[in-house]
């Protein structure tokens, strides 16, 4: 269970989060939508402690995220970064198996490699990419390697920052299904950022829309179409006219 209470974060004069409050129950899938640059990625990074919020409280299973053993805390998480963030000095399989090759989850190299190849298969990549370097892959392939790395150690809590951006529609469908499987079968808690409305409907139990630094609307995915919220309606239908200003 993740609880964000009244979180504020500014970069210099730029106020990005202005009192974000959000609750993600254990074992559910939350999808965050919202305009580009509204602070969705920043919100996820605040939970992981990669960015320190200026004020507010973030609780994971009732405990403050910044207290206690940081390694144990992070070992419960997997994260797919928006840009993939693959280590370009390591091969694809070493990236995927990064956690399995060192630290508390360390296991023999052959075993780690086998797990990496299995995870690559789950994101639609063949074993022959395992020994390539990230720079030798296409953008969409890099994204999927990032996804494989995020799920490799079977974390309890997984964050996906735009998992289907840059993928073809079929591959996007495969990834949506994968995320759903991870939540349903492994009982993981997931937070996904996406701009792809078909992804939202495929992945989400609940949806939250971030606008102006706060959660403008949140509710179960079934209520997405009859929320009565003009901001949300404008967003999901992609209309240029509405309460959200589209600067041109």
């Amino acid at each position: 269970m993740i609880n964000m209470k009244n979180v504020h974060k500014a970069f210099g004069p730029k106020k990005v989060l202005r009192g974000l409050t959000l609750e993600v129950p254990k074992g559910t899938s939350m999808v965050i939508i919202g305009g580009s640059g509204t602070g969705k990625s920043v919100a996820l990074k605040c939970v992981l402690g990669l960015i320190a919020p200026d004020s507010g409280e973030i609780l994971v299973d009732g405990k403050p995220a910044d207290s206690g053993d940081r390694d144990a805390f992070l070992a419960r998480f997997g994260m797919l970064f928006q840009g993939g963030a693959l280590f370009d000095s390591l091969t694809v399989w070493q990236n995927v198996a990064f956690r399995l090759l060192r630290g508390s989850l360390k296991r023999p190299a052959e075993e780690a490699r086998a797990i990496a190849i299995e995870k690559l298969r789950r994101v639609g990549l063949t074993p022959d990419v395992a020994d390539l370097f990230p720079a030798e892959l296409s953008g969409g392939m890099q994204k999927r390697v990032g996804l494989a790395r995020a799920i490799a150690a079977e974390p309890e809590i997984i964050f996906f920052d735009e998992p289907t951006t840059g993928l073809d529609p079929i591959m996007a469908g495969v990834i949506n299904e994968l995320i759903r499987e991870i939540v349903v079968e492994m009982g993981a808690t997931a937070m996904t950022i996406t701009h792809d409305m078909s992804s939202v409907r495929a992945i989400a139990d609940n949806v939250a829309m971030l606008h102006d630094g706060v959660i403008q609307w949140t509710g179960p995915v079934a209520q997405l179409d009859n929320s009565g919220d003009p901001y949300l309606d404008q967003f999901i239908h992609g209309r240029a006219e509405g309460p959200i200003e589209a600067v041109r």
Binding site: L48, L50, L74, A75, F77, F81, G83, A85, F87, F98
Partner: peptide, 12 residues
């Protein structure tokens, strides 16, 4: 390219 952030989240 967020690789440092990625390192941290991978407990390194």
């Amino acid at each position: 390219t967020e690789q440092i952030d990625a390192l941290v989240t991978l407990s390194t």
